[in-house]
């Protein structure tokens, strides 16, 4: 474990807590894309298949349970909770996220570390996570006034993967044979997708104006 990875995990944890806080306290999911949340639930479900078979550390297991629990409960809240679901603007959240799942699955069947079910699912979860934010970014472009919590959620979600890139650089130089091209390239693509969001997020913070993404 290194500081970059710990900071990345904490930032990721903060992003899901910010979103859970928003949905649970103000009982609203306005501006939140259900499709991105469903994709993330699928990402964790396919990435943490080894949660009960390989014990790495208490930290690792606890964090996996938190990410699984939070992502599925957020999907439940937006789909089922009688008050929250009313604030979900489904006619704005129209990204065809199923069109993201299949190409990621096909790519995982072609490019993986080892042709086993677990490894193909692992690669699938990395490719899917790289594009999972797209429905949310599209929704933000359509949402005129993005509330602070949603903006913070997306920012933290992007920042966590950027911190992971620093972690991979650190581990590459400190651990022999630490090479994971699939993870690195997927993580880089994922972070680059946030580039324009980061720009507008920083601009709005610097000029102290409401965050708005150009359509």
């Amino acid at each position: 474990m290194n500081i970059f990875r710990l900071a990345g995990d904490m930032t990721h944890l903060a992003s899901v807590l910010v979103l859970l806080l928003k949905i649970h306290t103000i009982k609203s999911c306005a501006g939140v894309s259900l499709k991105t949340q469903e994709l993330y639930a699928l990402v964790f479900a396919t990435r943490y298949l080894d949660i009960f078979t390989d014990f790495i550390s208490l930290y690792n297991t606890v964090m996996k349970l938190i990410f699984l629990g939070s992502s599925f409960s957020i999907v439940w809240y937006i789909r089922r909770h009688k008050i929250v679901r009313r604030s979900y603007d489904k006619d704005q959240d129209t990204f065809r996220h199923y069109f993201l799942v299949l190409p990621c699955l096909l790519l995982a069947l072609v490019i993986h570390e080892k042709f086993t079910f677990r490894e193909v699912m692992w690669a699938f979860s990395l490719y899917l996570e790289a594009v999972a934010i797209l429905p949310q970014l599209v929704l933000l472009q359509r949402t005129r006034n993005i509330d602070n919590l949603t903006g913070q959620y997306v920012f933290l979600l992007g920042a966590y993967r950027a911190l992971y890139i620093l972690n991979w650089i650190y581990r590459y130089f400190t651990e022999p044979h630490f090479v994971h091209w699939i993870t690195w390239i997927a993580g880089l693509v994922q972070t680059l997708l946030y580039a324009d969001f980061f720009y507008y997020y920083f601009e709005s913070w610097k000029n102290n104006v409401k965050l708005q993404l150009p359509a």
Binding site: R5, N60, K64, F67, K114, R118, W122
Partner: peptide, 10 residues
Amino acid sequence: DLEQPMHDEL
């Protein structure tokens, strides 16, 4: 055979 690559990151 090579044991399953251990993914120790989240």
